[in-house]
């Protein structure tokens, strides 16, 4: 089932009098439960595409349908509601609020809607924290834990509402390889449970864990690669295939 259908998405940024086209009419479809990644050189429009299909940024023309609803036609409030209930976001830098401790950051969006079920929310948050291995950190301030731990807390926050899709913008970009490995394991688990995941990445090792890789260049999707769902084996081959593809399209 198609969850996201993007048609002919155009987006440009203007600096002073000049406008720089970033997305030149991109179309894509994402299925429910799919695990996909976008690769491409810096400035190719990967992140912009992700912001466009998640409704985080407006687009100049084209349409993005999420669950059958045209995101451009929705009000700011409706977009917020969708972000809070159906989408989760994980960024390169963990985007947690400085004022709140780890637990409070994780439960923040859930508490906005559902203060009555605070106990349930807390229970769920603790279960998630245990799952990603940060349960002993719940009372820590965000300046008191490592980057990898913060990223895991960010993922907990993103999956609290049981979203249909998690968007990840280089979620492992600022982490060492062990931490990155751990994050990818968590994202894979989440995907196995039925949540779609869309990642933007430079890292072939990260992309190799996904089942479909889109390659972008100068604002367009130039190629695509499909794998089976990752089951812990065949990593080397998948990486080889990705690097070959990249060489082929000249990235």
């Amino acid at each position: 089932m198609k969850m996201i259908i993007g048609e002919n998405i155009v987006k440009s940024f203007s600096a002073g009098n000049e406008t720089h086209p970033v997305l030149g009419g991109v179309s894509l479809k994402i299925n429910e439960g799919e695990f996909i990644s976008i690769m491409g050189p810096s400035g190719s429009g990967k992140t912009t595409l992700m912001y466009a299909v998640s409704g985080m940024d407006s687009i100049d023309s084209g349409t993005v349908l999420f669950d059958g609803r045209n995101l451009s036609a929705l009000s700011e409030k409706e977009l917020s509601d969708i972000r809070r209930t159906k989408m989760g976001f994980v960024f390169q830098q963990p985007t947690l609020l400085k004022n709140l401790n780890i637990l409070d950051n994780i439960i923040l969006p859930a508490m906005r809607d559902n203060k009555k079920n605070a106990a349930k929310t807390m229970e769920k948050a603790r279960a998630l924290m245990k799952k990603v291995g940060i349960s002993e950190l719940e009372k820590r301030d965000i300046t008191e834990v490592s980057g990898g731990q913060l990223q895991r807390a960010g993922i907990c926050r993103a999956v609290m509402s049981q979203p249909k899709i998690i968007f990840g913008d280089e979620p492992t970009g600022a982490l060492n390889s062990t931490s990155a490995q751990k994050i990818m394991d968590i994202l894979s688990d989440i995907n196995t449970e039925g949540t779609a995941v869309m990642l933007v990445t430079h890292d072939a090792k990260v992309a190799a864990r996904t089942e479909r890789i889109m390659f972008m260049c100068d604002g367009s999707i130039v190629s695509e690669l499909r794998f089976k769902k990752f089951n812990g084996t065949g990593m080397e081959d998948r990486i080889k295939a990705i690097t070959a593809k990249m060489r082929e399209i000249g990235i």
């Binding site: 700011e76 409030k77 976001f89 947690l96 609020l97 969006p109 906005r112």
Partner: peptide, 12 residues
Amino acid sequence: AVMKSVGFTDSD
């Protein structure tokens, strides 16, 4: 921006 990304509205 963080608040908005996790679904807080302008009026929130």
